[in-house]
Design a protein around this nucleic acid. Structure first.
Lengths: 208, 208
DNA sequence: ATCCGTCTCCACCCGTGGGTTGAGGGACGG
DNA sequence: CCGTCCCTCAACCCACGGGTGGAGACGGAT
């Protein structure tokens, strides 16, 4: 039996979920809460094994509550169930430590699967959320259109990105500091940079 | 009926998958290939609707083949099925544009679900892979243990991260350049920084 | 009333960085 | 063979950045 806590500010949805999920032979709904603060108290009192959390709630939102729970109960998995599927909400919830993310068009079976999965230590994400995560994971190495630096210039740029000074770069590359400056001036001209800070930003963006 | 192409260098696995999946009433295995190059040719010839791809193959690996397919057939979903579940393999495949990622302990039902999901436009990821993606998405704002800067110092740090110079920061915050320098020296001491480059790196790390 | 932290500002020093010009040698292709 | 590109180095200038010390004003805490 998985002890489940349901958190949602809308009583109708909260109760409907409670009834529906309690019917499952593996799940026991041990309580409900209508906002993040109540949820924190309920966790202490009812010791659930999984929390099903709405995001948009008064007093304390689901993301913040999830983050707080992460710190006080690192092993207590939180599954987010919400109507919002914009990038900000998803990232906020996942960064707060949510172990699952379902939108409210998920059917009973999906929700139960997610609760079981979270309890087993897995992450269950809505297919749309998975696609968004894929975007985030695959987006990184896309940009950087037209900057063709020589090999030496790239090396120097990388070291600038590491935070090294010209003298350190010179020793690292076994060249004189004058040469380092030359490379820097050349790559500054090519990439339209005007300060070391710009170069650091570029170097990090290139590696990202 | 979903027209499926199976790509795996191990004949036994390849054939076993073909037989197993062809039994499904919704799936028709239209062909197999034993490496990435063959897969590209097979896609042209057999016009599959979904590709089930192994990663570790001679001649041309699955990640490279997936990337090539992404460009030539953007709408053709590729589901990766592999024994490797290390971060590099996962990221390489997902960045190449894979629409699913299964490890080889996935059972028949899971694979079939993944093929159907990919065909429907969804992403189906192995639970372990989902956890890793969650890590990637949530890792960013986690670190930075003990740096408590004042509000003003954070503002200055942010602007340093934008690449602004002290004079520009001063004008932006309506304070004198001397004050900017003071804040910078203070936050340098707090965060153990010794150069503007370090500050840029920290500012970018903080923003993620 | 007092202390402490923060924000504000100033003056000084000097090292580094950004920009310039100029120049020599090695590699490659026409 | 000559031109071109890249890497290498040098001298110079001056602005900006980093470090130090000091100082006044404000607010909250004790």
């Amino acid at each position: 039996m998985i002890r489940l806590l349901i958190v949602d500010d809308q009583a109708a949805i909260r109760d409907a979920l409670a009834v529906m999920l309690d019917l499952d032979p593996d799940i026991s709904v041990v309580g409900t809460a209508s906002n993040g603060q109540e949820a924190l108290a309920a966790v202490e009192e009812l010791t659930p094994e999984v929390v099903l959390m709405d995001l948009n709630m008064p007093v304390m939102g689901g993301a913040e509550a999830t983050g707080t729970l992460r710190e006080s109960h690192p092993d207590l998995p939180v599954v987010v169930l919400t109507t919002f599927d914009d990038d900000d909400s998803i990232l906020a919830a996942l960064r707060a430590g949510a172990r699952g993310y379902l939108t409210k068009d998920a059917d009973r079976g999906t929700i139960i699967q997610a609760v079981r999965g979270a309890h087993a230590g897995n992450a269950i994400l809505d297919p749309a959320v998975q696609l968004r995560l894929l975007d985030l994971a695959s987006r990184k190495p896309v940009e950087q259109p037209g900057i063709d630096l020589t090999a030496r210039e790239r090396e120097v740029l990388d070291l600038i990105g590491e935070g090294l000074r010209n003298g350190e770069i010179a020793r690292r590359l076994f060249i004189s500091e004058a040469t380092v400056k030359t490379h820097i001036n050349n790559l500054f001209a090519k990439a339209d940079l005007h300060s070391r800070a710009d170069a650091v930003r570029l170097a990090l963006a290139l590696r990202g």
